[in-house]
Each structure stands twice: as C-alpha cells, then as structure tokens.
C-alpha cells in the first residue's frame, strides 16, 4: 500500500499544475478563517460576523464543512487530470507493462483519493477547532465535540465526489471533457428533478425523496445549507414572517449509506472499464 501511494504521489507532486492546485486548495481552505474578520455596517450598527455566533460550537462544524466542500472543485481538477493524463501520456499502458496490475492501478488512485479527503477533513477539523476556541461562546468539551458527524459526512462526501471524478476520468479519458461531463451531469440531475416534478409527482417533497438517490444530489444532501440555521438569520425570519419553519439539518445514516454505495459503484465501474478496455 505504501508502494502504491508513493507511486501515485510522485505522479501528482512532480506535476507542477497539480502541485499548485493542491496547495491553492489548502490555502483557500484556510481563508475560511478570514470570514472572522468581515465587518459591515447595517442601519448604523457595526456587525462583526465572528461575533454573531457563526463560529459557535457545535454550529461551526456544520458551517465550516459546508463552506469547505464548495472548494472541492480544485481537487476535482487534480483528480480528473491525474486519471485522464495516464491515458493521454500513454503511461497507463506503460505502467501495466512495467508490472503494475490493473487492480493495483485502481487501488493506487483510490488510496490517493481517500488520502486527499482525509487530509482535507483533518485540515477543516483543526481550523474549525482553532476558530471555535477563539470565537465560540460555548467552550465546554461536551458541546465542542457534539455534532461531529458533520466531519464524517464531509469525508464521505469528498471520497464519493472524487471517486465520481476518477470514474469520469477513466470513462472519458480527457481531462477537459471529463470536467465538462461533470457539469453536464449536474444539469442532467436538475433536468430529472424538473421532469419528475412536472410529469410524475405532485409535490416537491416526493420528488426530493427520489432524487436523493442520484449521485450528485445525494452528495449535496449530506450537509444541508447552514445559513437558515444561523441564529441571526432565524431572528430576522422570526420578525418578518412571525415564525420559523422547522427544518431538519442533521446528517442521517441512510444518506451516508446512499453516498457510500455510489462510491463503491464508481470504483467497481472504473475497475470494470479498465479491465475490459484494450489499450
């Protein structure tokens, strides 16, 4: 396993574009901390975001994992190109001839994907911890370490998304087209949603129950948007509409299961394509 990882990391790290993108990703992640310094004036009152409870434990786990997952596209580019490049350079063929089995080849990519996701999760954990300890109104251990399932969800989400990228890289064989395909797939899920709503189901909730099984939709369902959960937002909504509609923000085990199943499907399909295709 160490051997496979070292092979893969050499391929990525010695590629300038991949190296720059990976570093950029982590630098941008740490910029989430800069939200703390946002100040703005509203109706003559000075707001400082950090003081509005945005970095309160355990809400911070939800907020930070949500914001951090937006940045995953940087790593997606690295992962798609790490796969597609093997085809364009013809190095996949050479690797196999040199004695790497197809199974080992997929494994080395999968391990790398997991490593990236794990690295990102740990990074977000440490950063949130520091921000929380600086700005949170609550600092009891019981509160700090509650709601950690958001980190698990974040990790599962990244692994699944990167597996999807890997699969597209193998399927399409060209980085740019694979990324294009990803975008097309995103719209495709939207279209499915629209068609189901229009032709099959009468209520949006019913459609959502079905589309929750689509790959990208299931990934984005893992961590719901945290903005409407924010205390300040709630306070405003309370004033405007005189009540807050209850919403479920938690991470459910079945949502994780759907995403894990997709991850397994993507990996197995990648392996199958690799096995079947003549180079």
């Amino acid at each position: 396993m160490k051997r496979l990882l070292s092979i893969e990391l050499q391929k990525i790290w010695q590629n300038k574009a991949s190296r720059v993108l990976t570093l950029t990703y982590f630098v941008l992640l740490s910029f989430i901390a800069l939200i703390a310094s946002i100040n703005f004036s509203f109706l003559g009152i000075n707001f400082r975001i950090a003081d509005q409870g945005i970095f309160n434990f355990p809400y911070i786990w939800h907020f930070n994992t949500y914001v951090a997952s937006i940045l995953k596209f940087f790593l997606a580019v690295v992962i798609v190109s790490m796969m597609a490049n093997e085809y364009t350079y013809g190095t996949l063929k050479q690797n196999l001839i040199d004695g790497l089995s197809k199974n080992e080849f997929i494994k080395s990519k999968l391990i790398t994907v997991i490593l990236f996701a794990l690295g990102s999760t740990i990074f977000v954990f440490i950063m949130s911890m520091i921000l929380g300890l600086c700005f949170s109104s609550y600092d009891e251990a019981g509160i700090i370490f509650s709601d950690l399932e958001y980190l698990l969800a974040y990790f599962v989400k990244l692994v699944a998304f990167f597996s999807f990228c890997l699969f597209l890289g193998i399927l399409v064989k060209r980085s740019a087209f694979a990324l294009g395909f990803l975008l097309v797939w995103f719209f495709f899920e939207g279209i499915i949603f629209g068609l189901l709503r229009w032709l099959v189901f009468s209520s949006t909730e019913q459609v959502q129950k079905v589309t929750a099984f689509l790959p990208l939709e299931s990934m984005s369902n893992l961590i719901k948007e945290p903005i409407t959960r924010f205390q300040a937002y709630k306070a405003i909504e309370n004033q405007v509409s005189g009540g807050v509609a209850p919403k479920d923000y938690s991470v459910h085990w079945y949502e994780i299961l759907i995403v894990v199943v997709w991850t397994v499907i993507f990996m197995l399909m990648s392996y199958k394509i690799l096995k079947k295709r003549d180079l």
């Binding site: 010695q14 490049n85 190095t91 050479q94």
Partner: peptide, 13 residues
C-alpha cells in the same frame, strides 16, 4: 520483463 511498445510513454513533466 523489460518491454517497450511502439512509442516511448513517460510522464513529460
């Protein structure tokens, strides 16, 4: 085994 096939395939970078 040592093998080379048709054209040399290496990582250009």
């Amino acid at each position: 085994v040592g093998a080379i096939i048709e054209r040399p395939n290496f990582y250009p970078y």
